[in-house]
Design a protein around this nucleic acid. Structure first.
Lengths: 134, 134
DNA sequence: TCATATAACATGTATATACATTTTATATGG
DNA sequence: CCATATAAAATGTATATACATGTTATATGA
């Protein structure tokens, strides 16, 4: 059964477990790592902006960011427009991100070696192209 | 940021939404459709067997199958080894699956056309190769 | 045969995810 | 200026997911 939906979900689960194992020592889930990076890049980042960048529902960002806030990794401040919530990394958030980055590089390298440079690039670009479906 | 983890998770979310929309009229989530198909193919299918086939944790199968059982789409019977639970489709499960199949074909066709035959095949085979990571 | 190991499944707990809807603040038209 | 539309975020609800652990039934070795 060559169902694209199944294939991509399955690959996502397997890959996620791989990254999850890598980040375990810093207590970050892969999604949380991604969110920290995104906040770092867009700082100060509005919820909606993060949702657009990550192709995730706004309500998902609201909930995921709350966990990071509760853990003290992210600070939330109101924007000039007080409907907007702006997220930025706390000092501790920056520290955790810096701890996580080499772990991320490690997995990336391992997975890249597993596939080989060419397949790695092909897979990345095809996955990126999935965005054009939405 | 060319993070493979992010790319595959994002593609998974987008693709899942696409299939989800397709199945909405029969009230199936993509995962549920996949599980119905797997049960149909392996019938009668043990929980652990389904987990292995789908590369999913056993506890996830236990929970997902329970929803299908409650809805009357799947029947669970003990095996000769009474630790084992065997799942099979009910008449209603078969009916729903038959309703869902053309919807599935439809999405498959649309997505395949979007990518083109060649990229579609490449993506499928690269995603399948992700299994070798685990 | 009985104690113990192991296999199959279930439960507790936690995160991720999205749709439908609600709340609150800003924008806009009359 | 006020009524209404719209934008941003939060809440209610439901599924999917996995790890750690518990429960129960079978297998195995002394």
């Amino acid at each position: 059964m060559t169902c694209m939906g199944l294939h991509v979900r399955r690959a996502s689960r397997i890959m996620t477990q791989r990254y999850d194992a890598a980040f375990r020592s810093v207590g970050l889930a892969p999604t949380q790592f991604t969110l920290l990076v995104a906040i770092h890049l867009l700082e100060p980042a509005a919820i909606t902006q993060l949702a657009q960048e990550l192709f995730t529902d706004q309500t998902t960002i609201t909930r995921n960011i709350k966990l990071l806030e509760q853990r003290g990794l992210v600070a939330i401040n109101p924007g000039d427009d007080r409907r907007i919530k702006l997220a930025s990394l706390t000092v501790e958030g920056q520290a955790v991100l810096e701890q996580a980055l080499p772990l991320w590089e490690q997995v990336q390298t391992e997975v890249k070696q597993h596939f080989g440079e060419e397949k790695w690039q092909t897979l990345l670009s095809l996955l990126a192209e999935v965005k054009t479906l939405s």
